[in-house]
Amino acid sequence: MSEVRTQPQEAEIWAWLDEVPDPEIPAISLVDLGIIRDVKWAGDVLEVTVTPTYSGCPATSVINFDIEKALRDHGIEQITLKRQLSPPWTTDWLSEKGRAKLEAYGIAPPTDAKGPEKCPHCGGTHLERISQFGSTPCKAQWRCKDCLEPFDYFKCI
């Protein structure tokens, strides 16, 4: 007979996942990023639904690995990861906490306008775009004309 164990509550699992950093932007968690869409028990199996940010984002497989590892470390043995494409991920799903952490980390959070609101270093508002693409699929390169520093902008999608 195997030992009967209580299943951790879903809220507790969300809290664990909120401690798993994004592999490319470790300042924010996977929950902050908004890519974890659902966590639920199906019998003894925990189903975690994940939405990719960009189709070709190379971090996707690392993210799946990190989720699985974190949950195993908390004693969950049976895990199914489901990929959900629809509705597609949007930067609106970034949490408020995540947006604040991004800015503190030096990455301007996404805005509805077509560019960053202010420089994440000095708060300057005289900004110019260097390139629509950046160091990861989700970022663009901008420069502040007040402090002259380049910075990443988390672009809207």
Binding site: P52, Y54, S55, G56, C57, P58, I130, S131, Q132, F133, G134, S135, P137, Q141
Partner: peptide
Amino acid sequence: LEEDIALANTALDLIGQ
């Protein structure tokens, strides 16, 4: 450099698709 990154990102999106 910026164009190199832009091309690589475009290629990455296409391979993801």
